[in-house]
Design a protein around this nucleic acid. Structure first.
Length: 930
DNA sequence: GACCTGCTGCGGATTG
């Protein structure tokens, strides 16, 4: 028993039947009691909450405190409920009030806190945001804050939620005028310094890191399902389960699918837990676990962290988790008591699952874990500036910048960059400047609206202002106006194009139109399966660089004898055979310094073991080059097993090898700007800068584009890594081997989903292809590799454009074909040797009648003219048309009106009307005389 | 059908 503990707490410890404090509680006591900022690192279930709260209660007894003395931040609502009860057990007996705040706390309970302000408030980062920005009354209690505890720091540090919280703490410090003590609770992390810098920010207090030493041991077994079917997977699970077990999968779908098969096998007391399951049922399942009434729960990441779920006997991972930290977190859900050894099993479905499992094992055994990547997104800064203005009505750039710099996450943001951001917010009306003062602008409440019913792309619900979690946008699929399903927006951007056939709600559908602004896909029923594209098939959650590193190590070593004991017979022999495949053919094993190249039909496959971000970068570069030069009907792939490109006639890796760095970097940037990942990031950050629903103007919105590019690169690409990879090839430190056949790791590359060129490419490519000439749709279709029908549709759309992409068609009289031309090139085509005969009527004195309809208004005009009039005075013809854009033009022969059908043209600008009239008359006469 | 997380305060009127 700690001698510094107040006697009343000692009594409570006895009541709780705790003979001693746990080791971690003992270790952190003095550091916290002496006012140091303290980071406590220990796995879940070691009493970290009490380690932080007991010394604080002890202080609170000794020194008088006013509410709110302690803010306890934790990322999950379920944890808030759990923790506030746990804290209340102690606090209520010592005369302190505890209150919780999150979106689902009943209004009644929330209202209490104004009358009886709590000494300890438990909430989420968003809850703190709301109070700081919007709780005009309650906020005053925050002036008394002495301590802030941040739970599950490891969960927050990599995300926008984390940097949001870091800024909030700096704002709180400024508001309260007191350097409150910060206490962080975290699971094992790779860099304690990064985590503590992140959390402690501008605080001047001494700092301490309290870590439970000694790596926890674990037991792991890697198994392989014999034939890879779901039935097989389920029966394999049956033999693995030791009640109660947790079965982690990587998708909700797998969770349900396994459950279904287990039920068929007559398994009782098996439950499912994932984000699409209602809170009530999830509560019930968790309760069953605690009461030891379930034999197994099949779950996704939802049960990776969170409330206490009782003693788990064994953790089974159905297919390997994507990272070492996730692996350890899942494993740590078993053997919870301090003495217990976590016991786990990974079930492999595909051959490379075994390799991944081995890599996770190796990395974890060596104490390796992913390094945190602290978020520094400027949309977070923008959001906090707006929150700060809600709170204070006004600020200055200098004042808020000094708050931003206090947060370690943003310590590298330059003042000039910050000012650009301020300018951007001002341009979009979210803020306005009056001299040096910054205030909220006229658009703020237009963007964030109070009316819940009023939904549109032009505004967001006010409640969303407080959260930086990106809602997963979805596209709705519509058939005859009715919604028949939903698809994740990112998936649409990345993989779905017009004319694709997809399967949803048990039927096949063909996509006829993609409407980006309305976020909808028009579809029609389809019977043929030809070209069906998979939706979410294949595991594409991005894999950690440590998995690649581990695999590379294993493959370089080329043997797995040391790991034999953790592999079951099938898993062991599968890897043995895989290695033997390469040996038999005198091929090196793919690794971080070996690339095996093979050609599968017209797809180049490069297998190597590589950081996924590098693979993604190269794959996007190849996609860019291929669409630019060869064909739009192409795709690429990227994974830790390498990359591939379809439809390139030459080996593009050779070409990349020959480029200098400057050219490479510029190519990388262009490729990323064209990627769907960039589009998705733009969509995510636009609201924070007040740019909703409006078209992005690359000149005016430079700041947003640059920021989106920066964030996209950080998250999905690697410029430095890619340059290194290419240098190593150039310097022959990486071996490249060609193989005429199919390799196992080539198969691994091909089993990952394809990345397709983004839509904007089509418009750009048509422009590039048309430039300076006139072509028929089928010629263009062949050159661009776009199906004729979709190309024609696209050309018809382009007729209506107003910018440089506007096209027009005319009749090639000699060949009786329709040719397409850019409006900007029209005149030069008319005057060219190739086509002037199409604009030269044989009889210039014949009379014609033209009917023109406006493209915009309900207005039309008739012209009676002779070709001679047009040739001699084209401006007079133009003058007689009272509108700029002509939607439809009909031309008829005055002498032959009863018999001929009018010749029609669409989407023409007034400027080129004289040429079209000449073309029409030339054609009519040529038909008449032939 | 790739994963997870969160989301208006205050006060006044009305009702039992």
């Amino acid at each position: 028993m700690h001698q510094d503990l107040d006697s009343r707490i000692q009594i409570l410890l006895r009541q709780k039947n705790w003979p001693t404090l746990t080791k971690i509680q003992e270790m952190s006591f003095s550091s916290i009691s002496t006012g140091k900022n303290t980071l406590i690192i220990a796995p879940t279930g070691y009493g970290k909450t009490e380690a932080a709260i007991l010394p604080l209660l002890n202080q609170m007894i000794k020194n008088e405190v006013k509410p709110v003395a302690v803010i306890y931040i934790t990322p999950l609502k379920a944890l808030i409920n759990d923790i506030s009860l746990r804290i209340d057990w102690w606090a209520s007996k010592l005369g302190f009030l505890v209150n919780r705040k999150h979106g689902e706390v009943p209004q009644k309970e929330k209202n209490l806190r104004l009358k009886h302000a709590p000494h300890i408030l438990v909430t989420t980062p968003e809850g703190l945001e709301i109070d700081m920005d919007w709780a005009t009354k309650f906020r005053d209690f925050y002036k008394n804050v002495k301590w802030v505890i941040v739970d599950e720091v490891h969960e927050l540090i990599n995300s926008k939620r984390g940097s949001q919280l870091a800024l909030l703490l700096e704002r709180l410090k400024r508001f309260s005028g007191y350097d409150f003590q910060r206490i962080g609770l975290s699971a094992t992390v790779s860099s304690e310094k990064v985590v503590s810098d992140f959390l402690f920010g501008s605080s001047n207090r001494e700092r301490a890191i309290i870590k439970l030493e000694g790596k926890r041991d674990f037991e792991i077994k890697i198994r392989k399902i014999s034939n890879g079917s779901w039935e097989d997977a389920a029966s394999s699970l049956v033999s693995s389960i030791e009640p109660p077990s947790l079965v982690f999968t990587n998708s909700r779908f797998s969770t349900e699918r396994l459950h279904e098969e287990l039920e068929k096998l007559g398994q009782k007391n098996v439950f499912v837990h994932h984000s699409s399951i209602s809170r009530d049922i999830k509560d019930m399942v968790e309760e069953k676990l605690r009461r030891n009434e379930s034999s197994a729960v099949i779950c996704t990441k939802t049960l990776e962290l969170g409330i206490h779920i009782g003693e788990i006997k064994k953790v089974i991972m159905f297919r390997p988790p994507p990272s070492v930290s996730s692996f350890l977190q899942r494993l740590g859900r078993s053997g919870h008591s301090v003495a217990g050894t976590p016991k786990g099993e990974i079930i492999s479905m595909l051959d490379y699952d075994i390799l991944e499992s081995l890599a996770l094992y190796e990395m974890a055994k060596h104490g390796k874990i992913e390094r945190p990547l602290v978020d520094d997104s400027l949309d977070v800064v923008a959001r906090e500036l707006l929150g700060h203005l809600l709170q204070n009505q006004e600020t200055t750039a200098e004042e808020f910048y000094s708050i931003v710099k206090g947060a370690n996450a943003f310590s590298k943001v330059r003042f000039s960059t910050f000012l650009q951001m301020v300018k951007c917010l001002e341009n979009n009306g979210l803020i306005k400047k009056e001299g040096e003062k910054i205030r909220l602008g006229p658009n703020f409440f237009r963007v964030w609206r109070f009316n819940r019913e009023f939904k549109s792309i032009w505004c967001k619900d006010f409640s969303e202002f407080f959260s930086l979690i990106n809602n997963n946008d979805t596209f709705s699929l519509r058939f005859e106006g009715k919604v028949i399903g939903e698809i994740d927006a990112v998936y649409v951007y990345k993989h779905i194009r017009v004319n694709d056939i997809i399967r949803i709600s048990g039927r096949l559908w063909k996509v006829t139109r993609i409407n980006i602004n309305k976020m909808s896909l028009d579809v029609i029923p389809e019977n043929s399966r030809k070209g069906e594209i998979p939706i979410w098939r294949g595991e594409n959650i991005s894999k950690s660089y440590l998995v690649a590193k581990g695999e590379s190590m294993i493959l370089k070593r080329g043997e797995i004898e040391k790991e034999k004991e953790i592999l079951d017979h099938d898993a062991y022999s599968t890897i043995k055979e895989m290695l033997q495949f390469y040996r038999d053919r005198d091929l090196p094993f793919p690794s971080d310094s070996t690339v095996v190249v093979e050609k599968r039909d017209d797809e180049w496959v490069y297998s190597t073991i590589i950081d996924e971000k590098i693979a993604n970068t190269i794959s996007h570069m190849m996609l860019y080059l291929t669409t630019k030069r060869y064909t739009l009907s192409t795709y690429s792939r990227a994974s830790i097993y390498g990359f591939s490109i379809k439809g390139a006639p030459i080996n593009l890796l050779e070409e990349l090898k020959g480029m200098d760095d400057e050219k490479l970097v510029s190519l990388i940037k262009k490729s990323i700007l064209r990627s769907s990942l960039f589009i998705a990031t733009m969509k995510e950050i636009q609201p924070s800068f007040g740019k909703l629903g409006r078209k992005i103007d690359p000149n005016n919105d430079k700041f947003i584009v640059a920021e989106a590019l920066r964030q996209t690169v950080r998250k999905y690409f690697s410029i430095k890594g890619t340059l290194n990879f290419i240098h190593k090839i150039r310097d022959e430190k990486t071996t490249i081997v060609f193989y005429n056949g199919e390799t196992p790791l080539g198969d691994a590359v091909l089993s990952h989903v394809s990345i397709r060129p983004w839509l904007v490419d089509i418009v750009e490519s048509i422009y590039e292809a048309l430039k300076g000439g006139a072509y028929t749709a089928s010629e263009l279709s062949e050159v661009l590799g776009i199906p004729l029908k979709s190309l024609e549709n696209k050309l018809k759309q382009l007729r209506k454009m107003k910018d440089k992409y506007k096209v027009s068609s005319f009749i090639d009289v000699d060949n009786k074909e329709v040719r397409w031309v850019l409006i900007e090139d029209f005149q030069s085509v008319v005057n060219s040797d190739d086509y002037f005969t199409s604009f030269t009527p044989s009889n210039v004195d014949e009379t014609f009648i033209a009917t023109l309809k406006s493209a915009e208004r309900d207005s039309q005009v008739e012209l009676i003219f002779k070709p001679r009039d047009v040739i001699e005075n084209p401006d007079e013809i133009r003058r007689r048309i009272p509108f700029e854009d002509i939607g439809e033009l009909k031309v008829m022969d005055m002498n032959d009106m009863a018999y001929s059908t009018p010749l029609k043209f669409y989407g023409i600008s007034r400027n080129v009307i004289p040429y079209i009239l000449l073309n029409a008359t030339t054609y009519i006469q040529s038909v008449k005389f032939s």
